[in-house]
Every structure is written in C-alpha cells, then in structure tokens.
C-alpha cells in the first residue's frame, strides 16, 4: 500500500547542536569518570589531572546544556516541547508502548515527537543530570563556577548519604544508568529507522525525517 510520504523538518539546528553537545560531554564524562574511578592505561592516556579537568569541564557543559534545553522546552520558537513530557499523559500511553516493544501488540499510536517511554527516559535524564551535578559537586573541592565553595554549599549531600564513599557509589551507579539508557536510545532509534523506514536515525544529523501522512498526530 503506497503511503504519501513527505520530508518533515524534525529538528532545527538548536536541537541538533544541543543533542550532540550532550553526546560529546556524556562520552567524555563516562570515559574520564571510569578513569577517575580506577585509573587505567597509565602510560598512554592523558594523565589524571587532565582527566579530572576534562571531567569538570564536561560536567559544566552538561549543566549549562541542560539549562539551555529546559529553556528550549518552554520557549523554543521552533518547537517548545514541554507538553510532550506531561507525566499523566505519558503514564496513560506507556502500557501500549511496552506492549508494542514486547511484541504483544503490532502497532502503536503515533506521537508528535516522543512516545511515552521516550519522554520518561528523557525526563529521567534531566533529573539525573541534576543529581549527578549535585553529587559531583559534593565530591568537588573547588569553587562552583569559580563563585562559591563547593564543599560549603553541597557538603550536606555527603552527610545525607553517609559519607563521600557513598556519594561516589551513587554517582557511579547513575553513570551506569546513563550508559544503559543511552545504548537503548541508540538501539531504539536504529530499530525505528529500520522498521518504519522514516530516517529517524539520520534526522539527528540532517534534521529531516520522513513522515507518513497516515499517522495519527497529537
């Protein structure tokens, strides 16, 4: 059955740049984070102080990036998507998506940008970036943005969690959450691209996605 297929401008330049800045800083954070956790490849890699420097710079990038992303969610002139993250709406839609991904259902409702599971994942990223920033700052001994002492401002987190060791463990385990969800995220976008042939995967590079006119929009 031939469908009417058209190119749709899915992501403008701001969304794409924001996405790839997050990707880059996340990759650097994970790599340097593993290094700080347990220094490896000692002779060949940049050394510990440089790794830590990169880690801090990337985290600042991520925090600023998140702030910009939240701003875009509300005030983007291209597409302000804050309504798509409505928790109540997404709880209603989630069972269908789970059923689709577990092969219990053949089709699912089309969504404007994010399906409920996506929306939850992205929302959790935003929340966990904040938690990572807070736990990271609780472990940091310098000045936050060079303005005020990190320890006096965020030391309470260590006391809350029972000590720096546990802050580190939490920081470390949340990193694994990011790794896992990021891998699933890439897999899902590839899967979508292969199943629907709609260039979802390429859209984050080019900005354009193929949209079938038959899909229900909301």
């Amino acid at each position: 059955m031939p469908k009417k297929v058209q190119l749709k401008y899915e992501w403008n330049w701001a969304y794409r740049i924001e996405h790839w800045v997050h990707v880059a800083s996340m990759i650097i954070l994970v790599f340097t984070g593993f290094y700080i956790h347990w220094p490896f490849c000692l002779a060949k890699c940049p050394y510990c102080d440089f790794n830590r420097f990169l880690h801090f710079v990337s985290m600042y990038t991520l925090i600023i990036g998140l702030a910009i992303r939240v701003y875009m969610a509300f005030f983007s002139r291209f597409y302000a998507d804050w309504k798509d993250f409505s928790i109540i709406q997404n709880i209603k839609g989630a069972p269908e998506m789970v059923a689709y991904y577990t092969f219990l259902k053949g089709e699912h409702k089309e969504y404007r940008k994010y399906n409920p599971l996506q929306a939850f994942t992205y929302l959790s990223w935003a929340g966990l970036i904040i938690i990572q920033a807070l736990t990271g700052l609780a472990l940091y001994t310098g000045d936050v943005f060079g303005l005020f002492s990190s320890q006096s401002a965020f030391g309470w987190i260590n006391r809350l969690l029972g000590g720096e060791g546990f802050t580190r463990i939490l920081h470390f385990l949340i990193m694994w959450y990011f790794i896992i969800t990021a891998v699933v995220h890439v897999y899902m976008s590839l899967l979508q691209t292969l199943v629907k042939r709609d260039r979802t995967f390429q859209s984050m590079f080019t900005g354009y996605k193929l949209s079938s006119a038959t899909g229900k929009k909301r």
Binding site: W38, F172, L173, M175, W176, I179, I180, V183, V184, Y187
Partner: peptide, 17 residues
C-alpha cells in the same frame, strides 16, 4: 562492589538488546 553491579546491568542490557 559498585563495579560488579554496573557491569551486571550493562551485560544484561547488551543481552536484552
């Protein structure tokens, strides 16, 4: 150890995918 937990979750994800 935190390492084992992370690794186990990572492996489970890879298998799942």
């Amino acid at each position: 150890t935190a390492d084992k937990i992370g690794l186990a979750a990572g492996v489970a994800t890879a298998v799942g995918i």
